[in-house]
Nucleic acid binder design. Structure first.
Lengths: 206, 206
DNA sequence: TAGGCGGCTACACACACGTGTAATAACCTA
DNA sequence: TAGGTTATTACACGTGTGTGTAGCCGCCTA
């Protein structure tokens, strides 16, 4: 399919795909080399080590994501650009990879997580949303988004479809919009929850 | 600390702890055996194999979680039992383990995921919440909850505290209540998102 | 008290993985 | 065309891991 690319690029693409599918640890350099139709030695020649390969994938993925987002904003400028962009197959793959890399403790992905939290805090400041702890609010929101990508296998199973298909991924996005467009907890339940959490701060009773 | 337990129980406890911390793959049977102060051979003697050990941990964790929940409901019966129970250290550890096991493709954890989705659907039926796709709604909600457990390291880093501490975990719970108690998207934005997603279903334009 | 049985250990095996090394082919340049 | 650098391969090494095997020790029973 992409055999017209340079070997280095083919290795990188195969690595991102296999890392996203299997996870960083389980995906071996031999798997990746075979998927790219090269020897495992060439992989090492180009990237030095497995960690070097992952670093290169991190850099490429973050940069590529920024490019895709910029293209989308420049072309459309819609507020819903985030949604139509999220179902782009390439964008989905890159996000899946970055979340996997994040689970493995990648420094680059850690930085991206922090950037996302900061962006969320900024966004929160412009919203009519009340929070006593904006940073925790934004951080939990980002973690929830990650959950959608990490639980793809489980989601595919319970929904009976492959959510990697853009059309079915859109189903997840619609559900998430439904979740965030209306409150799940009424004021009474929310206050009860707050009270319960406050009670935990000073657990006097046995 | 728990050296008064039988060796089998000590191995199981150590396995759940290390599996939850490192993940199923990275945690070796030698690590677990050492943490339980036994030889790796004894682990194999009791559980047959690493997968046998994980199955035993799955069974114990699911059963123990059910017991803890039942105790909480029987003793309090409060609607906020779910919240006070979530910060119980043992309950937190078990959930962390089950999510890890789920990521590794454990059959028992898969069943638990499906049960949680079904419970979510049932709960949704009693709520004044509108959804065109209740199953997807519930599934995404469960996946988001999992995200909070899988992203613990990242959350701890950006918040500057160890969220494994029950007090700091309560901070996450408070943020999640804030998220779910008020809509993030107003009607206009939500409709725009729905429209954007509908437009994707029939992508005529280039 | 003799015998058996389960808890428990030490040690060795096979395999897969990341890594290292030497050699070959291609390609560009002087 | 000669030379050297890069792309590419095949193969061997060390290590860590799950697994297998033989044996020892304590308890319980007949």
């Amino acid at each position: 399919m992409s055999s017209d690319l340079t070997a280095r690029a083919r290795i990188r693409d195969a690595a991102i795909r296999l890392f996203a599918e299997k996870g960083i640890g389980p995906a071996t350099i031999r798997d990746i080399a075979q998927a790219a139709s090269v020897s495992s030695g060439l992989l090492r020649h180009h990237f030095g080590s497995k960690e070097g390969l992952r670093d290169a994938c991190d850099d490429f993925a973050t940069e590529r994501m920024a490019t895709l987002r910029a293209q989308l904003l420049a072309r459309g400028g819609f507020g819903d650009a985030a949604f139509v962009g999220s179902v782009h197959p390439e964008s989905m793959l890159l996000q899946r990879y970055l979340v996997r890399s994040m689970m493995d403790g990648s420094p680059a992905a850690e930085v991206m997580f922090e950037r996302m939290v900061e962006a969320g805090e900024l966004w929160l400041g412009d919203q009519p949303i009340k929070s006593k702890d904006p940073r925790a609010y934004a951080a939990v929101l980002v973690a929830m988004k990650m959950g959608m990508f990490l639980m793809r296998e489980q989601l595919s199973r319970v929904l009976g479809v492959d959510v990697d298909e853009p059309a079915h991924h859109a189903r997840l996005l619609r559900a998430s919009v439904e979740i965030f467009a209306q409150p799940l907890l009424d004021a009474e339940r929310a206050d009860a929850a707050y009270a319960a959490l406050d009670r935990l701060a000073v657990p006097e009773e046995s």
